[in-house]
Design a protein around this nucleic acid. Structure first.
Lengths: 286, 286
DNA sequence: CACATTGTGTAATGAATAATCCAAGAAGGA
DNA sequence: TCCTTCTTGGATTATTCATTACACAATGTG
C-alpha cells in the first residue's frame, strides 16, 4: 500500500490540480489510476498535462511507470488474503483519523444501547398519519431536529420544527393536544426551556419521543419512547453523531414502512418543486 | 467475478492459443489482463493478434473494452466493504442495527478518502482570525452548515451562516472579498444556486472550503480545500453522517489548535450568556 | 501596483498500442 | 495423399495515447 499511503500523507508541496487528482485517486482507488491519462484527468477535473506532471512529482518516470507500480500493488493485495485484514487494523496515525475512529466506536455502542423494538415504536408512531409531528431541539441539537424534520417532510404530511415555547406565547401551547407527536432532542447539558416545553405539552396529552444521551434527560420520564446515544468525543464538545445516525436509521425504517405511500408523496412534492423553479434558468442539477 | 468465472469454465470452443492466454490470465489475475496486448501476448507465448481475437471471442468489442470490464471487477472486489468484513463480525440482526453498521463503514471509508493535510489546511484557515467565515449549505446539508457554524461561533469571532445569494441581493455579493472564507456543503445532487454562489464569491477573491461527496461538486475546482465524504446509505436518502463526523473532527482540531485562545473566548461567551438569562428563573441546567 | 514565479490549459507532436491483412501452417476427413 | 477448414504469426496500418511546447492565468513579493 505504499502508493496509497503516499497519497494519504498528502505532501503539502501539492498544487491545487494535484490535490484534485489525489482525491480522485483515493475516491476510486485504484481503478482511476489504471486507465488512461485523459480519463484520470477528466475525472479529476484537470488537464492531461497536470496528470503527467503529477506522477512525475511523485517520483515516477512516466505515467505508464506509475501504472505499473499501481498494478503491482493491486496484484499483491488481490492475491494475498492476509493483506486485506492488515488494512483494517491500522490504528490511525493522525488526530483526524483518530477522531473518526472514535466516531465509529460511538456507533458501535449505539447499537448496544437501544433495543430494536424502541426504533420500531418510533417508526410506527411516525407512520401514523393522524399525528401532527413537531420536532424540537436545543442549542446544538436543533440542527439534528431540522435535519429530521426535513426528511419527515418528504415522507409524511403535517411535520414542522418548533422552538421552546416561552411564556409570551401561551397560544402555541394551547394548540397541542392528544393528536400531537413531539420529537425532542435533549442531550446534556439538558436545556431548561426544552424540558419545560416537554412538561407542558405532556400535560396537554401529547406524545413525546426523545433523543437523549445514556444519562437521560429528565424528559425521559415523560417520553413514550426514547433513543439513547453516546456523546463522548475527543474534543470538549459533545458529539451528536450517534444521534444523527439514529435519525437516518429512523428515516430509513420509516421509508421502508410507508413504502409506496412515501414514494407517491415524494413524487408529488417533486412535481410541485418543478413548478416553483424559476423558468428562465437552466437546471444544473444532474 | 464474472470474467474469472467465464475463464475458469473453459469453453471447449477455445483454440490452442486461447488456452494459453486463459492460463496466463488465471495465473496472474487480474494483472496480466491490465497491461498491453503485446505484454499479455508475450507472457502467454502467443502473438498479438491471437490476444485480440481471443477477447473478441469472449464477446468484447475491443481489448480496451475487456480491460474496462476487468477494472470494474477489480474495483468492486477491492472496494466492497461487506465482502470481506461481514464474515468476521456478527452480520447484524435488525434493520436498524444494519443501518448503523453501514454508517460505521461510511466512517471507515471517510478515513481513506482524505489526506490528513487537507484537514489541517481547513483548520489552519479557520484558525486565522483575519478571515470572516460564512457557512453555506443545500437543502439537506444546511443543517450541517448550521451545526458547524454553531461550533465555530464558540471558537472564533466573525462567523455566520448564509443562504445562496440570489440576483435580488447583489449587495450581499458585493460584500465578499479577499478576506472572506466561505465554507460550502454541496453533496449530490449538486444545487444550482449554491454552485452559482460559489462561483460569484470566488470571482470576488474569497477562499472556498468545500464539503462534498467522492464524485465531487463542480465547486471542487474553485475550492482551496475540499473534504470528501461517502454518502451511500440503505435508504433512498443520501447520508450526511460522514460529513457530520468531518465537521466534528474539524472542530476538535480547531479547538486544539486555538488552545487557550478558544478557551478564553468560550468563557467570555459564557459570562455574556449568564447576563442574558432571565433573572427570576432558577437555572435547571446541570 | 508592477514584478517575478509558479501553475495550468490548449494545441501540436511523437510514440505506443490495438487492430487489420495476408500468407503460412496445422488439423481433420475422404 | 490431397483437400478443406480453421488457426496462427509477421508485417502494416490506423488509433489512441502520453508527452512536450507555449501562452495565459494565478499567486505571492517587493
Amino acid at each position: 500500500m505504499t502508493i496509497k499511503d503516499t497519497l494519504m500523507r498528502g505532501s503539502d508541496s501539492l498544487t491545487k490540480a494535484d490535490k484534485l487528482i489525489v482525491q480522485e485517486l483515493l475516491a476510486n482507488y485504484p481503478t482511476s489510476g489504471l486507465s488512461t491519462v485523459s480519463d484520470l484527468a477528466a475525472r479529476s477535473g484537470v488537464s492531461d498535462p497536470s496528470v503527467v506532471r503529477f506522477v512525475r512529482r511523485l517520483g515516477f518516470d512516466s505515467y505508464p511507470a506509475f501504472q505499473k507500480a499501481l498494478l503491482a500493488e493491486v496484484d499483491e493485495r488481490m492475491n494475498s488474503p492476509l493483506s486485506m485484514f492488515s488494512k483494517v487494523k491500522q490504528p490511525a496515525k493522525d488526530s483526524f483519523g483518530r477522531y473518526l475512529e472514535g466516531c465509529a466506536d460511538l456507533l458501535r455502542r449505539t447499537r448496544e444501547l437501544n433495543p430494536a423494538s424502541e426504533y420500531e415504536r418510533v417508526v410506527e408512531a411516525l407512520a401514523d398519519p393522524d399525528f401532527r409531528v413537531s420536532v424540537l431541539g436545543g442549542r446544538y441539537s436543533r440542527y439534528l431536529a431540522g435535519y429530521l424534520a426535513q426528511h419527515l417532510g418528504m415522507l409524511r404530511a403535517d411535520t414542522r420544527t418548533i422552538e421552546p415555547i416561552g411564556e409570551e406565547e401561551p397560544y402555541v401551547l394551547e394548540a397541542f393536544g392528544r393528536r400531537d407527536l413531539v420529537i425532542i432532542f435533549d442531550y446534556r447539558r439538558y436545556q431548561a426551556d426544552v424540558i419545560r416545553t416537554a412538561e407542558r405539552v405532556r400535560e396537554r396529552g401529547s406524545r413525546i419521543i426523545l433523543f437523549t444521551d445514556p444519562w437521560r434527560s429528565p424528559i425521559a420520564r415523560l417520553a413514550d419512547a426514547s433513543l439513547l446515544a453516546p456523546v463522548e468525543s475527543l474534543s470538549p464538545f459533545d458529539s451528536t453523531l450517534a444521534g444523527m445516525a439514529q435519525i437516518e436509521a429512523i428515516v430509513a425504517g420509516l421509508t421502508a414502512k410507508l413504502g409506496h405511500v412515501a414514494e407517491a408523496r415524494m413524487q408529488t412534492l417533486e412535481a410541485l418543486a418543478v413548478k416553483l423553479r424559476p423558468a428562465k434558468e437552466h437546471d444544473i442539477e444532474d
